[in-house]
Amino acid sequence: MGTLVFLCLGPLLWAVQLTLIYGPQSSLCAYGIGTGQGGSNLLVAGLILIVSALCMGLAAAALLRPGAAYELATGTRPSGETWPFLTWVMRALAALSLLAMLYAGLGALLLPACAQLR
């Protein structure tokens, strides 16, 4: 189980990022907390950027230090003949997730946070 978590660290962080940006964004916008002119909301935009940076930082760390990430996820040291394969897959997934997280965060820079825009 721990190994599977290790393998999927990147996409898991992506899931955390999506939850943490979509949840607060829709609730804060629904209540109109912090919403200003034209549906812009600096609180929400800031939150999205901070969460994105944080999750991307963690994914990048896992990408660079897979051994440490493995110990964190499983509590044991990496071993076995499958280790090179697992590391490779984990790092490639982390790289793809970095791109996905970048995409998700991008909207906050280009669009007002709470406007319907129709």
């Binding site: 034209g38 549906g39 791109l99 995409y103 991008l106 909207g107 280009l110 669009l111 007002p112 406007a115 825009l117 129709r118």
Partner: peptide, 20 residues
């Protein structure tokens, strides 16, 4: 695809933003 999709995503969001 990463390059094409990045360009397309930004273009799509800009068109979406034009509604404002």
């Amino acid at each position: 695809p990463s390059v094409v999709l990045t360009v397309l995503l930004v273009y799509g969001l800009l068109i979406l933003g034009a509604g404002a």
